[in-house]
């Protein structure tokens, strides 16, 4: 596969890099990344990965674009209100880079469809906004042996970690079970700075780029945390749990689980309007 002159120019800043070069750019162009959630985290990740020329980008989300999304979900614009998020995201990605093959899944991921969706991908980005989905993505990726990057954001803070088979702990090593419904606030309840989604979503895109090109070190065995208010970025070592319910050699969770969503995560626009009126 030889580059066209247009590709040489488009990807020149990558090809110049010693860590990427021709080989790395070809790996990006052959790469398949699935982004689950076309929201705050998924938006910047999808845009940068499309711009980087990642060959196939899958994007999964069942929602439509809502006015309250636009404060941070920069892949969607005011003209996209009411449009399925995956359609709006695909249009933006194709506009940035027509070379990219975008595959859309207008569906909520669940125990009965996730294994089928992730199986064709090299790397998965968790850009979801709730614990049931985050645990489901962890369990499905671990069981299928597909590397993935987990992330979470709230208020002025964010964090992420990467799992690769045999190279460190999974999300469940660190967090055993989803917290009880509404015990830990989500960003819908607690708020989040839009730029935080940008920072952490971009770091997830960076993990995908490093994974595909083989450049540098991944965030395996490490949780990167960012606190914007104190300008603190830390990389905390996280150990493997030898008794992990999913990734240990004697797993107790061998089937995928649909945990119950927190009440507030399921709120429709009407519910919000109703709550505001009270």
């Amino acid at each position: 596969m030889a580059f066209t002159d247009e590709q040489l120019e488009r990807y020149s800043r990558h090809i110049i890099l010693k860590e990427v070069g021709v080989k790395g750019q070809k790996k990006l162009m052959a790469g398949k990344v699935l982004i689950i959630g076309a929201g705050g985290l998924g938006a910047p990740a999808a845009m940068y990965l499309a711009a980087a020329g990642v060959g196939t980008i899958g994007i999964a989300d069942a929602d439509v674009v809502d006015l309250s999304n636009l404060q941070r979900q920069v892949i969607h614009t005011t003209d996209d209100l009411g449009k399925p998020k995956v359609q709006s995201a695909a249009e933006t990605m194709k506009a940035i880079n027509p070379d990219v093959n975008v595959v859309t899944y207008e569906d909520f991921i669940a125990a009965n469809n996730i294994a089928d969706i992730i199986k064709d991908y090299d790397f998965v980005l968790d850009g979801t906004d709730n614990f049931p989905a985050k645990f489901l993505i962890n369990d499905a990726c671990v069981q299928a042996g597909i590397p993935f990057c987990h992330a979470g954001i709230i208020r002025f803070r964010g964090q992420l970690m990467t799992w690769v088979p045999g190279e460190g702990p999974c999300y469940r090593c660190v967090f055993k079970e989803p917290p009880p419904k509404d015990a830990v606030p989500t960003c819908k309840q607690a708020g989040v700075i839009g730029a935080m989604a940008g920072v952490i979503g971009c770091l997830q895109a960076m993990e995908a780029v490093k994974f595909l090109t083989g450049a540098g070190e991944l965030l395996t065995g490490k949780l990167l945390t960012y606190d914007a208010l104190t300008n603190t970025i830390r990389t905390v070592n996280i150990p493997e749990d030898p008794d992990c319910a999913v990734c240990s050699d004697h797993p107790t969770i061998t089937e995928l689980i649909d945990y119950e969503q927190a009440a507030c995560d399921g709120l429709s626009k009407d519910d919000v309007a109703e709550a505001a009126a009270e």
Binding site: F3, D5, L8, E9, S12, R13, I15, I16, G21, V22, K23
Partner: peptide
């Protein structure tokens, strides 16, 4: 027939082959 940075990029692509 090209300008910076494609000059170096083309040379780099050729040498990597």
């Amino acid at each position: 027939d090209v300008v910076c940075p494609v000059t170096f990029v083309k040379a780099k692509v050729a040498i990597e082959e």
